Computed example of a mutant assay.
Amino acid sequence: MPDVNAFDASALRLFDEVARSGSFTAAAELLGYTQSAVSRRVAALERAAGGPLFERLARGVRLTPAGVALRRHAAEVLDRLDRAGEELAAIHAGSGGTLRVGAFATANVDLVPAALKRFAERHPRVELRLVEGLSPRLTDRLQAGALDLAVISDYPAGLPAAGGRIVPLGEDNLLVALPRGHRLAADDAVDLRDLAGERWIEAAPRGQPTLLQTACAAAGFTPRSGLRVAEWSGKFGCVAAGLGVTLVPGLAARAVPADLVLRPLRGQMPVRRVYAALPDLPLPAALELTGMLGEWQVCTTATRT
């Protein structure tokens, strides 16, 4: 059985050059070897192959049938190695390969897409992949090596243990979404206490306090229970129908339909802090995207009239 370990990349490159030039001497000159060194290397390949790869002619050499077969395989191997080298160089330069990004739902409304757009314009050869999930799940995937960067938050149970690097991106402030005909819709900002009697459209329960409950508790009242809706589109539909009001993270402001009114809240309100989580040895592309995410400015005074 041939010794496949003898067919390393350098041996295959030397063999291919001898076949191309038809001469041990010409190949030696091109590769910077002595003619005797090339002859010895080819002889070692022929022993590993179990027979001659070249016919020795009066002037030069030519491939035997076994040599033709080996050259076909060598061309495939050397091409794959060349492409692998190019891809690795691009990955280390941050200009190629695949970048796997995870983010929580409201970060995918504006923050992450805007950064990904800028990144893709600058690095069109990088394949971008995006997954959505809760922050604890995203950090699990990051630690397992399934993500290169995760956009996470400290809501609702604090910042999950992510390991690696944690880069603060900003704070996400709360806004209130009102139907256009609401009595406070014309105000520049709204005091949450003025909404104590309203019916609230809440998030579907997950077994932990919501931002709405935390904010209302800080304002000194318990929100009047209304409808529970998991998806933002459903919440906005309920508000537009006059079934209640709801709180909206600034990150999700762009998703609010134009027929609703958005107002900032007065006073001290709870905020959600947003971070980029990276492994200990982050890809250059992940670091660059983190920088773009860090240029985000959180909506704190958004109004829609």
Rank of each mutant, 00 (worst) to 15 (best):
M1A: 15
M1G: 15
V4M: 11
D8L: 12
A9R: 15
S10Y: 04
V18A: 02
V18Q: 01
V18H: 01
A19V: 02
G22K: 09
S23F: 06
F24P: 01
A26W: 02
A27Q: 08
G32L: 12
A37Y: 10
V38L: 06
R41S: 11
A43R: 14
E46R: 10
A58M: 00
L63G: 02
T64G: 04
R83T: 05
A84D: 07
A90P: 00
I91D: 00
G96Y: 03
G97F: 04
R100A: 10
G102S: 11
N108W: 02
E121I: 00
H123Q: 13
P124A: 11
V126Y: 08
V131W: 12
G133D: 06
P136Y: 05
R137A: 10
D140M: 10
R141Y: 09
G145S: 11
A146D: 14
D154S: 03
Y155S: 12
P156K: 11
G158C: 08
L159W: 02
I166Y: 00
G170I: 01
N173S: 14
A177R: 06
H182L: 10
H182P: 00
L184A: 09
A186S: 13
D188H: 12
W200S: 07
L212C: 07
Q213L: 08
A217N: 04
G226I: 11
L227V: 14
V229L: 15
E231L: 12
E231C: 00
W232H: 13
S233Q: 13
A252H: 07
A253L: 06
A253Y: 05
A255I: 02
V256P: 02
G267V: 07
M269E: 12
V271H: 10
V271S: 13
Y275R: 01
Y275P: 00
Y275A: 03
A276G: 03
A276D: 06
A276N: 03
P279H: 14
D280V: 15
D280M: 13
P282I: 13
A286L: 08
T300M: 10
T300H: 12
T305V: 03
